[in-house]
Design a protein around this nucleic acid. Structure first.
Lengths: 132, 132
DNA sequence: TACAATAACGATAATCATTATCATTATCGC
DNA sequence: GCGATAATGATAATGATTATCGTTATTGTA
């Protein structure tokens, strides 16, 4: 592939970046598309996917693969997520998985670069609602 | 949904279970389908998906979501996987993520039931081949 | 063993998420 | 401003998965 391609500025990409930066709910491409259509009535889903992929490629954002459509995270640093079995929300965990990395490297015959973990359970909100 | 449905024996489901049990490469539904077609020439992909989902539902196997099609794991116990950036192989990690669970529960305002981690890097085989 | 009820099947259409194509538009260096 | 080309919007195409539906297999009971 030709890696010499110079990226040009685009208002759409800038808007996607901005939209993603101000939140922690890890939206899907579809969600971002719906939201950005207000600002860009002619926006195409393809543009959203294209730019999200480009931002992932460049290491600026991260892609989260769970059940269902991919989610995107403005924080590209490897970190953990909590996935609620009740409402399906995905929230950041403020853990450092350095320890997990160190432990894993001890018994592994290869080169481990990074680690991402998912925790599953019920968020406090869902626990409250179930209790009622 | 009607949860009173009693499952009946099926040769296809039994074959899927058996096929998955004897390996550690976490195949996709498509891979299992191709392999099982030899034993069941009339097998339908739908049957493979149906049964895999059923086994996941009953907690007998686990579904692994990464980039690309879902993979299936005969070990339903939460555990970690290593994903090679070179060849794309997915191998089990013999870590205990109990420590990660305990650490995560300390700073979290909800109920964390389980944890699964992915480690990314280069497997020993790919390191060898790159070095040449 | 036969029979009725129904779970599971195979074939395939439909859906959902994502990517590829392509003619047009916007950006950027000169 | 102009030419080169990256990015766009519209949409067709793809890949993975699920839904539908008429048929077949399993199972409990007569």
């Amino acid at each position: 592939m030709d890696t010499s391609m110079k990226t040009k500025f685009s208002r759409q990409r800038e808007a996607i970046r901005k939209q993603l930066s101000g939140r922690h709910d890890h939206p899907t491409a579809e969600t971002l598309y719906e939201e950005l259509k207000e600002e860009f009535p002619r926006l195409s889903v393809a543009t959203v996917y294209r730019n999200l992929n480009q931002l992932v490629e460049s290491g600026e954002i991260a892609k989260i693969n769970l059940n269902g459509p991919a989610r995107f995270d403005y924080n590209p640093e490897p970190h953990s997520h909590f996935v609620c079995k009740g409402c399906g929300c995905v929230v950041d965990m403020s853990d450092n998985n350095d320890e997990a990395l160190i432990a894993a490297r001890k018994n592994f015959d290869g080169d481990i670069e990074s680690c991402s973990s998912q925790f599953y359970g019920m968020c406090s909100q869902c626990i409250k609602e179930t209790a009622q």
